[in-house]
C-alpha cells in the first residue's frame, strides 16, 4: 500500500514537472505545426480568406522553377560551408586546449563573443563592413591601392561574405563543444602515444580526431540544420540579393508568407522543406551511425 502511494506520488511529481514544458511544447511547437499543415491545404491569406483547396499549393510549388532554384541554392550553400563549420572550430579548440600556448582563455572569450550577438545585428554590422560604397573593407582596400570589390553586385562575393559571417558567428559555440570533447579524452592515451614516439600531429589525427567523432556528429547535424535555415544573417547582409542570388529557402518561405500574403503556399513550402530536412538529418544519422561508432 505504502509502495503504491509512493509510486503515485512519484508519478504525480513527474507529471507536475513535465506538464508545463509539455504545455509550452504543445502551444509553441505542436499547435503551429498542426496549423501549418492545415494552412498548406488552404488559400489562407493571413486574414480573411481561408478556403480548402486540396493539394493545389503543393502542385504550384512542385511546378515552380524558382522554388527548385532556391532549394538548390540552399543546398549548395550548406554543402560548401559545412567543411568550414567543422574544421575552423576544431582547429580553434585544438589550439585553445594546447598546453604550450598562452592567452588561450582570452582567445576562447574572443572567439565566443560573436555567439552572443543577434544574427540580425551581426548581419547588419557585416553589411556595413562590406558595403560597396562606404564599407570599411573597400575603404581599406582602396587605401592600399586595390580596386574596391563588388561585394553587393557579384553573387559569388555576396555568398562569400554571408559564409564568412555565418562561420564567424557560430565558430565560438562549436569550438566550445569541441573543447568539451577534447577535455574528455583521457590524457593517458596521449602519454602512451608519446612514449611510443608519436608526434603531436599523429596524436591529433590518430587519437583526438577519431575520439571526437560523436562531437563532430553533433556539430555536423547542428551546422547542417542551421545552414539550411539561415535567415536573419542573410536579411542583415544582403536581403537575398543581388537579384535573388542569396535568397535561401527560409527567405523564400518568409517572403511568400509575410510579404506576399500567401500563407497557404508558404505553409506548404514549409511542410515540404521540413520533410527534406528530416530526410537529410536521417541520412546523416545513418552515414555517421549517429557518431556512435569510430
Amino acid at each position: 500500500m505504502k509502495k503504491r502511494q509512493q509510486a503515485f506520488c512519484h508519478t504525480r511529481s513527474f507529471w507536475m514537472f513535465v506538464i508545463p514544458s509539455l504545455a509550452l511544447f504543445g502551444v509553441f511547437f505542436l499547435l503551429p505545426l498542426g496549423l501549418s499543415i492545415w494552412f498548406s491545404f488552404t488559400n489562407y491569406d493571413g486574414w480573411k480568406t481561408m478556403e480548402f483547396i486540396g493539394l493545389k499549393n503543393y502542385r504550384d510549388i512542385l511546378t515552380n522553377g524558382d522554388f527548385y532554384k532556391t532549394v538548390w541554392r540552399t543546398i549548395v550553400y550548406t554543402v560548401c560551408n559545412l567543411p568550414f563549420k567543422i574544421a575552423i572550430p576544431l582547429l580553434l579548440a585544438a589550439l585553445v586546449t594546447s598546453k604550450s600556448l598562452r592567452g588561450t582563455t582570452l582567445v576562447r572569450t574572443l572567439v565566443y563573443i560573436p555567439v552572443l550577438f543577434s544574427a540580425l545585428v551581426a548581419g547588419i554590422t557585416i553589411n556595413w563592413m562590406f558595403g560597396q560604397e562606404y564599407g570599411l573593407i573597400n575603404y581599406l582596400l582602396q587605401k592600399i591601392g586595390v580596386d574596391p570589390l563588388q561585394w553587393s553586385l557579384n553573387p559569388v562575393l555576396a555568398t562569400v561574405v554571408i559564409s564568412v559571417a555565418s562561420n564567424w558567428i557560430s565558430a565560438g559555440y562549436y569550438m566550445l563543444l569541441y573543447v568539451g570533447g577534447i577535455n574528455n579524452i583521457s590524457k593517458e592515451l596521449y602519454e602512451a602515444a608519446s612514449v611510443d614516439g608519436a608526434k603531436k600531429t599523429q596524436a591529433f589525427f590518430r587519437i583526438t580526431l577519431p575520439l571526437l567523432m560523436p562531437t563532430t556528429f553533433i556539430v555536423l547535424l547542428l551546422s547542417t540544420v542551421n545552414l539550411l535555415k539561415e535567415y536573419a544573417l542573410v536579411q542583415g547582409i544582403s536581403l537575398g540579393g543581388p537579384g535573388s542570388s542569396t535568397t535561401y529557402i527560409v527567405q523564400y518561405i518568409f517572403d511568400q508568407g509575410f510579404n506576399q500574403y500567401r500563407y497557404g503556399y508558404a505553409s506548404a513550402a514549409g511542410v515540404i522543406i521540413s520533410i527534406l530536412f528530416i530526410v537529410i538529418a536521417m541520412v546523416q544519422f545513418r552515414a555517421t551511425k549517429g557518431g556512435g561508432e569510430v
Binding site: N127, G131, Q132, E133, Y134, Q150, W151, S152, L153, A158, S238, L239, G240, G241, P242, G243, S244, S245
Partner: peptide, 22 residues
Amino acid sequence: MPKAIWAGGTTDNPVEYFKNGD
C-alpha cells in the same frame, strides 16, 4: 547609376549618395 542599389545587393540609400555628393 550605382547598380548595386537597384540590383538588390545592398541596403545603401541613394539619398545618402546624393547628400554625400556622390
